[in-house]
Amino acid sequence: MKDEVQLFAGAGIVPGSVATHEWQELDKKMSTLLSLISDNPSLGVAS
């Protein structure tokens, strides 16, 4: 059995939302969560 951790984050899409900005926000949220459990929190999803 593999050790596994699942992390989830979401965004509220509203009128006027910009897809690129939403991805950047999710990347920041996930990087914060990953920084708590990893030495390499960068996802490289949003730039």
Rank of each mutant, 00 (worst) to 15 (best):
Q24R: 15
S35D: 13
V5F: 13
G12Y: 06
L33G: 10
V5I: 11
L33A: 11
L33E: 07
S17Q: 02
G16S: 01
Q24D: 06
G10Y: 02
A11W: 01
D27Y: 07
I37G: 07
S38D: 12
K28N: 06
L36T: 14
K29R: 11
S42M: 08
L33T: 04
K28E: 06
L7Q: 04
S38N: 11
G44N: 06
W23Q: 05
P15G: 01
S47E: 13
S17F: 00
H21P: 02
L7C: 04
N40R: 14
A9S: 09
Q6S: 11
D39A: 09
Q6R: 08
V14D: 00
W23H: 03
F8N: 09
M30Y: 04
N40A: 12
M1D: 06
L34S: 08
P15A: 11
V14E: 01
T20P: 04
L33W: 03
L34I: 07
A11P: 02
E25C: 11
G10Q: 04
L34A: 14
P41V: 06
V14S: 00
A9P: 02
D39N: 13
L33I: 10
I13K: 03
M30V: 08
D3C: 15
L36H: 09
G44W: 03
I37A: 12
N40D: 07
Q24W: 06
K2R: 09
V5M: 04
L43M: 13
P41K: 10
G10N: 02
E25P: 04
V18Y: 00
M30I: 15
I13A: 11
I37E: 05
S35R: 15
S31I: 15
K28M: 10
D39Y: 14
A11S: 14
E4Q: 13
V45R: 07
H21M: 10
S17N: 03
K2L: 15
L26T: 00
M30A: 04
H21Q: 14
F8R: 11
M30N: 03
S38F: 15
S42V: 11
Q6Y: 12
S17G: 02
L7V: 01
E25A: 14
L33F: 13
I13L: 10
V14F: 00
L7E: 03
D27E: 10
H21S: 13
Q6K: 09
A19V: 09
A19S: 14
K28P: 03
A46V: 03
G16L: 01
G10R: 05
E25Q: 06
S35V: 05
P15D: 03
L7M: 12
K29N: 05
P15T: 06
L34D: 04
S31F: 15
S31K: 12
L33P: 12
Q24F: 09
I13F: 14
M30D: 01
L26D: 00
W23G: 00
P15K: 05
G44I: 06
L36A: 08
K29Q: 11
V14I: 03
T32Y: 09
T20Q: 14
G16D: 01
T32F: 12
E22S: 02
L33N: 04
P41F: 07
